[in-house]
């Protein structure tokens, strides 16, 4: 029998440190599969964030350069401007990209930097222990929103991808999810399209991926995926937010 599914070539043999049922490692795998399929393992440079995915460089068998919290887009900009023929991606969580690094992200998108951003939205600060994220839903519990996020105190969850779509330099932005096989398969397609957008030199591309955090949501992995399906996608609808790939 032939192996039809296994560890992608662009992933190291390391065991993931993520919690049971975490979406990060699924997303890592999808990125690695896309790298393999596009044959760009020797051309790609990744920029991992601070946060749960800070150790992403232990899993990807590609060149990786760490960015300070929130500065992924700026570090990726530097790498890409220096090496325009390489593929550069930043991997960023919601706190990283939509709170502390909002400015860097919006301006990179607006300049049309030829980078791809993988934006993992799990609505919580995982690594620091479950505090409110900019994307935490109204009413959703976190360690800094006991009793749930309150509008009058905490404001609205931020629609960063929609904001980035307004930027003239962004070309392809899609929100996907990894809560079911169907959505995982689609997410991979979106990542592939985002990388291709960069390879073709069209502009800034980003895939926002709704991802479960069973530990901090205090749910079983299965319940966490159900929560995405029943609740989160109502607040963060899955859709192509911007696609000008065909128009360019």
């Amino acid at each position: 029998m032939k192996k039809v599914f296994g560890r992608p070539k662009s992933m190291k043999a390391a065991e993931f440190h993520y919690c049971p049922g975490c979406g990060h490692s699924i997303i890592h795998r999808l990125i690695a599969e896309v790298i393999d399929e596009l044959g760009i393992q020797e051309k790609i440079i990744g920029v991992p964030p601070a946060g749960c995915a800070v150790l992403a460089y232990n899993y990807f068998d590609v060149d990786m350069g760490e960015a300070p919290h929130g500065r992924g887009a700026a570090v990726a900009t530097g790498i890409k401007r220096s090496l325009p023929d390489r593929i550069v991606f930043s991997y960023q969580g919601d706190g990283d990209i939509a709170a502390i690094g909002t400015a860097e992200t919006i301006h990179a998108a607006n300049r049309g930097e030829l980078i791809t951003t993988i934006f993992v939205n799990n609505g919580v600060y995982g690594m620091t222990g479950g505090q409110m994220a900019p994307t935490t839903l109204v009413g959703q519990d976190s360690t800094t929103t006991p009793g749930g996020r309150r509008l009058e105190r905490d404001g609205f969850p931020i629609d960063l991808s929609e904001m980035l779509a307004i930027a003239h330099g962004s070309v392809y932005i899609e929100r996907t999810s990894v809560h079911s096989p169907k959505h995982i398969i689609h997410t991979k397609k979106a990542i592939k399209k985002a990388f291709k957008t960069q390879i073709e030199g069209l502009g800034f591309s980003l895939v926002e991926i709704l991802s479960p955090c069973p530990t901090n949501w205090k749910m079983s992995p299965i319940k966490a995926n159900e929560f995405i399906n029943s609740t989160i996608i109502k607040n963060f609808p899955l859709k192509v937010i911007k696609d000008e790939v065909g128009k360019l």
């Binding site: 029998m1 032939k2 192996k3 039809v4 599914f5 296994g6 560890r7 992933m11 065991e15 993931f16 993520y18 049971p20 049922g21 975490c22 979406g23 990060h24 490692s25 699924i26 795998r29 992995p221």
Partner: peptide, 8 residues
């Protein structure tokens, strides 16, 4: 999530 399964 853990790349624990191979398919043949």
């Amino acid at each position: 999530p853990d790349l624990a399964i191979e398919v043949y």
